[in-house]
Design a binder for these strands. Sequence first.
DNA 1: ACGCAGGGCGATA
DNA 2: TATCGCCCTGCG
Length: 326
Amino acid sequence: MKTRFEIDSHEYKGQLNLDLTIKSGQTSQPAWLHKDDYFLELVAIEGKQCLIKIRQEYNDLESPLEIFAESSEDVEEDSIRESVMEIFGLNDDLNDLYDFLRKDPKLEPSIDFCKGLRLFKAHNPFECIISSISSANCSIIRWNRSINDIKMKWGEKFKFDSGIFYTFPSPETLRNVPEHDLEEMQRSEDHLSKEFIFEKNLKSCGVGYRAKFIIKAAEMIGNQIDIDKLTKQSYDAAFDSLLQLPGVGPKVADCILLYGFGYRNSFPVDVWIGRIVSELYFNGEEIKPPKARLFGMEKFGNYAGYVQLYMFHYARKSGLLDSLKK
DNA sequence: ACGCAGGGCGATA
DNA sequence: TATCGCCCTGCG
């Protein structure tokens, strides 16, 4: 099955900046592969693996999105369209958001810096959970690399004309992966050659001490923690459930809820958001993360997730972030 | 070279 | 209940 279609800007409210949305470092998933104007990723639609190629005219936030989809199975165009809408936050009304931001003089300037930036939702919730765990105490490039490594080592391989793509492995697969060189060596003792290179273990993906957390989390998902249930729970209940996973604290849980499950009221607080909140709303007085989190959730309500996203990019681009470094 | 940034955890009071 | 040292790696 190969198909091509467009999504016209009239089909969603407000603008979309595809490039900015994909590259903004949201922990839902690594940035999509950028190749000849197109962004590419393998996405499961109706349970079938489907390569999505998407492109937007450079610097034209109003032009129609051009989408190519390709799969060895038949996938309905409507389902692909729905997935794309969901992944790129096209069901969100950015005009509404901007009306909200304009009412707050502290947030108003963020609009110009972030035009068309949308929440980049995970197409694979389990991948989002592992991405978010990997992102803790870690740079964006590093955890992006780790997740791509994990996909290449244990994902299922799919070949297309435009390249080779891998799925993110299932919890069942990931929970059985060796943690480090030693474990990999022990497991393959019987057939070990002199030149054996240890590279099929989690630590070799650069996740560091988070390897243990990832394996344990993969074990718990499907047992104590049911992903489908999480999406149907209240924000508070889902937050508490996620905290049971190793490597998941408040910040990571909020990222998973926002980028993985679409809880728009979550307000993930890392050191930067903490500093920005204290600078903008508390005269620079130090605000502890739990307090900043509650402040954001209460003040911004269902816009909290977007406000967090916009605050960070605004601060980054305006130079505010640099001024807060010390 | 080497010290620091980054979020969560487990030990401590 | 709050505070603090440590975990691993990339970068300046």
